[in-house]
Structure formats: C-alpha cells, structure tokens
Simulated scan of single mutants.
Amino acid sequence: MMLKKLYKFIILPYTIFLLYLMFFGMGRHQMEYNIIRIKPILSTIYFIEETFSLKDILTIVLGNVLMFIPFGFLGWVFPRLKDLKSLTIDFVSVIIIVEAFQYFSRRGVFDVDDVILNTFGVYLGWQICEFLELRFKSLVV
C-alpha cells in the first residue's frame, strides 16, 4: 500500500479528532476566565514542577509534540508545504489561530509553549517524511 494515499485518507479525520480534543476532549469545559500564557518555555517548566504525576507530564508535554507529527507530512497533500519554511510558516499561522479560538471560547488556554511544542512535532514529522522518502521510495510513491 502506498503511504501517501493512506495519509491523504487519514489526515482530515485525524485533524477533526485533534480539534475535538483541543476544545472538548480530556475533560475540557468552558473556563470562567480567558487565560493567556506568553512566556516561552516557562509555563511548561512550571507545569512540570507543579505536577506530581509523570503520566500527566508525559500526556501534556509529549502529547503536544507527538500529536502534531502527522502534520509534518502535509507536503504529500499540498506540494507547496513540502518546503520546511512554507510548512512552518503556514502551520504556525494556523496553530496561532486555533490557540486564539481556545482563548476566546475559554475552552483552553492560549499558550505560546503549545505553539512551540506543536511546531516541534511538525518539524519531527517533516524529518520523518524526508527520511521515508529517501529510504523507502517505493512505499512512498
């Protein structure tokens, strides 16, 4: 089976599922106040220091990276996004909009660390995509 065709079939439902998680999943509810965290890295460090559960740390911090790896493959669907610079600019623009919706809906927090971690996940996905294309050309076509 060709990976690109499978990816094209899966990425839209995956995106919808991820948006659901970001606004309604994992016990989210509408908060009383709008919250914004704009100090890079600090909110993640504070979260790790204040959280006693390794599971919670892994779920939040690693989840913010791992869940976005599939978006590093968007060049398979949109050839313009094959270039890392274009992919990064477009992704950061979209994820900032999503974070803003979380802020204005009070269904999450606008957190610059989320933008950084999510973008790192996309970068890892892009690296994996490049590796797969070089190493397994017959599977990726």
Rank of each mutant, 00 (worst) to 15 (best):
V77N: 15
I89G: 11
N64F: 02
F17N: 12
V61N: 08
T119C: 00
R106F: 04
I45C: 10
L18Q: 13
V140L: 14
K55R: 14
Y103L: 06
S105L: 04
Y123R: 05
S53N: 15
Y7G: 10
L124F: 09
K82G: 13
K39A: 13
V77R: 14
R107Y: 00
D111Q: 06
I35R: 01
Y33F: 14
I97V: 10
F91C: 05
V140A: 02
G75C: 05
D111L: 06
K8S: 13
L54T: 13
A100D: 04
I116F: 02
W126N: 01
C129F: 09
K5A: 11
V112E: 02
T44R: 08
D113G: 04
I89Y: 12
T51R: 13
A100P: 01
T119W: 02
F71C: 01
V61M: 08
H29P: 03
T44P: 08
L66P: 05
F101P: 01
L84E: 07
V94Q: 00
R28F: 02
F104K: 07
F23D: 02
T59R: 14
D83T: 04
W126H: 01
Y103E: 02
E32W: 09
L134K: 14
L132D: 07
P13S: 11
G108C: 07
Y103V: 04
F52M: 13
I69F: 09
R106I: 11
P79S: 14
I38S: 11
Y14A: 11
T88F: 09
I69P: 06
E50N: 15
P13D: 08
V92F: 00
R37L: 08
T15P: 10
L3P: 07
F23C: 03
R106L: 07
M2K: 15
F78Q: 09
F23K: 01
Y20Q: 01
K8V: 01
L87P: 08
L87M: 09
F47L: 14
V77P: 00
V115T: 00
V115Q: 03
F9T: 13
M2T: 15
W126F: 04
I57M: 13
S86Q: 09
R107V: 01
T15S: 15
L139T: 10
P70T: 05
F110V: 10
F52P: 09
S93Q: 08
L62H: 00
L42P: 01
C129L: 00
L18K: 12
V115H: 00
N64W: 02
F17D: 09
V109T: 09
S93C: 13
Y46T: 12
I97W: 00
V109R: 03
G25W: 07
D113L: 01
F136G: 06
L84Y: 12
L42R: 13
I95S: 00
W76I: 02
M31V: 08
V122K: 04
